[in-house]
Design a protein around this nucleic acid. Structure first.
Lengths: 220, 220
DNA sequence: CTTGTATTAAAACGGTTGTTTAATACAGTT
DNA sequence: AACTGTATTAAACAACCGTTTTAATACAAG
């Protein structure tokens, strides 16, 4: 799928784009030099400005390209009408964790996107509209489904954040996390480890949602 | 307490330190220029190298200084023997949320520390040993207490991360979060909003821990 | 008043950055 | 074969960075 792109990076523009992505992901926008990218892409220093205008526009294109590749590689989960809410939640959590690839070096596409949302540029508004907002929406609907009774939008969003937070914490400060707790998931195969963590967060969240909902219902 | 420091920033070193903190917190290490700091501190450009050696050492001192101020301003929660585990958990969560100051611009000390743990330098090992590791330890003990039965260390750490993650998600990508969901906590006073969120995460976590523990017990 | 030392100030240095220029190579068209 | 527009290159540019140098100044000790 993306192999087509990898096997045919003939045009200088594509070579630059493919070289820029990982470097931007590793070092951020400011610490990345055009010369570095051009060397990796085997093109002249002037090529970036020739094809992309300036460094900022190249970064913009690289982020959008990363999003495009990531969307193609791990699509949103799908289910039929009969799938229970609990199973749908598990599919969601599995997808988030899989995209973030716990403890292993995440692919540059993911790292670049995380970098962008933590230091947002103008590029981020496009990501929010095409990606994050719909994602949060469907998760909120799922939470509403699990909660049963109709709940306050703010409340639903907070529950969604509680779920997402449990996943994202593993990518919040990966190096510091490893420094603090050592290598989580060091032995055994990652596949099974990820499965267990998915189970943990799913059950944790299901119980959490129900407890929080019944608690607030009792208060009102 | 820290007012003593604020009211007496006479020495150039302290003026530089107090000027550097917020700037480093706002723009990160690389995007901050020595000239900028010196202008804010009303000292000559050469002063940073004269008093601190180089830019990196100044950054190091600024981070440690921020940690020192933050520790003095919001100390760890304390309780007596009779405090139930659930209440202790609530105190912990309240402290984390208070330190992160949901949705409001966090103080520069917090932003600088978050910046350091997300882009760790050598300074971070000191923060981990003096701060994060003990913090995670006591939270793990608390989780063990709530779980009742003895549990696997890895499992305990994952439960701790599920709790912490629910809090940190609000600081993971604050601007993008606001772009996606709008201003959470826009009306009403923040004090009460923080209280409600603390309650939510506490009940969510308590139920989550118990559900996850009983689930894994059932599996073994 | 002189000496010695610590501080401040201005200026410059060497290096790197993003970007531009100008020359060259080359394909396609007439 | 001459022309035209695009692609590619080497070189240079101007700006800014962290750091150093050098000199002027302040000031306490003798």
């Amino acid at each position: 799928m993306a192999d087509l792109l990898d096997s045919a990076p003939q045009t200088p523009q594509m070579r630059i784009l493919l070289a820029a992505g990982p470097i931007f992901a590793d070092k951020g926008f400011r610490d990345t030099t055009i010369r570095e990218i051009c060397e990796a892409a085997s093109v002249n220093v002037a090529s970036v400005n020739y094809y992309f205008g300036d460094k900022q526009k190249l970064y913009h294109e690289a982020v959008l390209f990363a999003r495009q590749m990531q969307a193609a590689q791990s699509p949103e989960p799908s289910w039929d009408e009969s799938t229970p809410s609990a199973d749908r939640l598990r599919l969601f959590i599995a997808m988030i964790l899989k995209r973030m690839v716990v403890n292993e070096q995440a692919p540059w596409q993911v790292r670049l996107l995380l970098n962008e949302i933590q230091n947002p540029t103008e590029t981020c508004v496009q990501l929010v509209e095409d990606y994050f907002r719909p994602f949060m929406q469907s998760l909120a609907n799922l939470v509403r489904d699990i909660a049963g009774d109709p709940i306050d939008p703010l409340f639903a969003n907070q529950l969604v954040l509680s779920i997402v937070g449990q996943c994202m914490i593993y990518r919040f400060a990966p190096q510091t996390l490893t420094m603090t707790l050592g290598d989580l998931f060091e032995d055994q195969d990652r596949e099974q480890q990820l499965d267990r963590l998915t189970d943990l967060i799913t059950h944790f969240s299901l119980a959490g949602i129900r407890a929080a909902v019944s608690k607030t219902k009792r208060q009102t």
